[in-house]
């Protein structure tokens, strides 16, 4: 367990975020979350990990998938027009009509079924290398450091976003996520009670690790379908670095 020294979260000067976003394409995450990310955006040519909190979500992977879908729907379009997305998983329970409400066009989604984690990640790499997909999502339990490194290189070389969603089979406990990740960012998301019966759903979103950034933790809410940011921050939970130290994650 490595504890990083406390780094104060500096808020970047006004306009810098926008200028950085122009040179470095990425998914805008809003001001509060963007302040923890280098460049203020979630970079496109990079590998990102999203993991669930404890509970049934570890096996269901619905919240994690929802977060990924909201990110995909806001990817900046390249020169070649709208490219399809690839979603590789071991289970076939992703329900396409549920994606429509999140702003994702299921017609652009190519689904793939792989027998195990190794095949899932290998297929993800093949999908990234072709450059034919705007982004590749893989549902896998364990992501070894070597695999993460290969995937990160493939993302970087082809300028495509890779998302690894941690999800474990039913009846199996989650393994500890490996330390010292090779992914550029690692997120953790779990449900929290929403404001009321018809209120949008809320989650606790934690940026556990960001290369060149600082960790953070927020309570976020689903935005409008065509909002610019995937989530809207409702409350900042704590001083991000202090929160990270409290959890013992660097």
């Amino acid at each position: 367990m490595v504890l990083l020294p406390h780094r104060p979260a500096l808020s970047p000067p006004a306009g810098l975020v926008a200028r950085l976003a122009a040179v470095r394409p990425g998914v805008g995450m809003g001001a509060a979350i963007g302040a923890c990310l280098p460049g203020g955006v979630l970079p496109v040519g990079a590998l990102h990990e999203v993991g669930p909190e404890d509970g049934a979500e570890v096996q269901q992977g619905a919240v994690v998938a929802g977060f990924a879908a909201r990110l995909l729907a806001r990817l900046p379009q390249g020169a070649g027009g709208p490219l399809p997305w690839l979603w590789v998983a071991g289970r076939e329970d992703l329900y396409a009509p549920g994606l429509v409400a999140l702003g994702l066009d299921p017609g652009r989604l190519v689904l793939a079924c792989a027998p195990d984690d190794a095949a899932t990640l290998a297929a993800m790499e093949a999908g990234l290398r072709g450059g034919a997909f705007a982004a590749v999502v893989a549902e896998a339990g364990r992501l070894s450091r070597i695999a993460a490194r290969r995937l990160q290189l493939a993302c970087l070389r082809h300028g495509r976003m890779g998302l690894v969603l941690h999800r474990w089979p039913y009846g199996r406990a989650a393994h500890a996520v490996e330390e010292a990740p090779s992914a550029v960012t690692r997120w953790r998301i779990g449900g929290v009670p929403s404001a009321g019966p018809f209120a949008p759903p809320r989650w606790r979103l934690a940026l556990v690790h960001a290369r060149g950034g600082v960790p953070g933790e927020w309570i976020v809410e689903a935005g409008e379908r065509d909002a610019a940011d995937p989530v809207r921050v409702v409350a900042e939970l704590a001083d991000p670095a202090a929160a990270a130290q409290r959890r013992g994650v660097g």
Binding site: Q60, A62, D93, L94, Y95, P97, G98, L99, V100
Partner: peptide, 11 residues
């Protein structure tokens, strides 16, 4: 796909 559908789960 139609742009609007009734609210459906993701899984």
């Amino acid at each position: 796909w139609p742009a609007q559908l009734p609210d459906r789960p993701l899984r």
